[in-house]
């Protein structure tokens, strides 16, 4: 091999390379477009976007950062699941193991914890930005609504994750939080009108949330399933709709006067 082009030729001009990358990239208009719609991940984007979409001062990148935080949380979360049993006997010691036995277990858990706080912060700032630029106005009203549900789901994702280490902090945070459920009008045993429906601590909203009358093994299992499977599933579907509608409603908003 005499020079660099020979090496690149060797790498590129074979069946394997060509089967992965369908064509060369030459920085032409056509190739820049192909780079986007020929790629399953990038094709969430249109081939061209408004200038406002690349201006950091306009969007602050907050929606994208929220999504990126979600991805980090999914990845670290999946790895954490390899080391965790959602049972009262094992949950706490699993977290201890993460601290003392699992290689990089501490940083793994830290990333998940701080990533979660971070996502809650940036999703709120994203909502503030969308409000301040009036981007919920026509034709984007529906997508604002999807965003509100995603905001609530972000809170619920974090909330359900609180209990999983089975320590005092999570246990009492969940106790305080779910006690609110007991106060639901009609459906919580301490709420107004609940006597009319014969609601007791054993058949009210709180019971349904905890899978019991107090925070115990069933509550741990339920919060685990909500946290790792059910809410991420719903959130992912809503995110798809959210991103899809950003495009269908005309991309990142621009001044309409």
């Amino acid at each position: 091999m005499k020079n660099l082009t020979d090496i690149t030729d060797k790498v590129k001009k074979n069946l394997i390379w060509k089967s992965i990358f369908r064509r060369d990239y030459r920085n032409t208009v056509r190739d820049r477009a192909m780079a986007v719609f020929g790629n399953v991940f990038l094709h969430l984007h249109p081939v061209q976007v408004r200038e406002s979409a690349v201006k950091l001062r306009f969007t602050w990148g907050m929606g994208g950062i929220t999504f990126f935080a979600f991805i980090i949380l999914v990845i670290t979360g999946v790895v954490l699941m390899f080391y965790y049993h959602p049972s009262v006997d094992q949950a706490y010691t699993d977290i201890k193991d993460l601290e003392f036995q699992v290689p990089y277990g501490v940083i793994l858990r830290n990333l998940h914890r701080w990533g979660a706080h971070f996502m809650v912060i940036v999703v709120m700032i994203h909502m503030f930005r969308v409000f301040m630029t009036g981007s919920y106005k026509a034709p984007r009203q529906f997508n604002w609504g999807i965003g509100v549900f995603l905001l609530v789901l972000t809170f619920l994702l974090s909330f359900t994750g609180y209990l999983t280490p089975w320590d005092q902090l999570g246990f009492w945070a969940i106790t305080v939080g779910t006690n609110m459920g007991a106060a639901t009008p009609l459906l919580g045993y301490q709420g107004p009108f609940s006597e009319l429906l014969h609601i007791t601590p054993y058949n009210d909203v709180r019971f349904a949330l905890l899978g019991g009358a107090q925070v115990a093994g069933n509550a741990l299992l339920r919060s685990y399933i909500w946290h790792c499977v059910a809410i991420p599933l719903v959130a992912t579907i809503l995110m798809l709709v959210h991103f899809w509608r950003v495009r269908k409603d005309g991309g990142i908003s621009k001044p309409q006067k």
Binding site: R32, A33, A35, V36, L42, H45, P46, V47, Q48, V49, R50, E51, S52, A53, V54, K55, L56, F58, G61, G64, I65, F68, A69, I72, F118, K254, P255, K257
Partner: peptide, 25 residues
């Protein structure tokens, strides 16, 4: 600000800024 904005390519101006932000985060 932005009223007379035109369009830019997604690849690379937008993809680049997304990558940078992702790295910073």
């Amino acid at each position: 600000e932005g009223e007379n904005d035109g369009f830019v390519d997604t690849f690379k101006p937008l993809v680049r800024i997304e990558l940078i932000i992702a790295l910073v985060v």
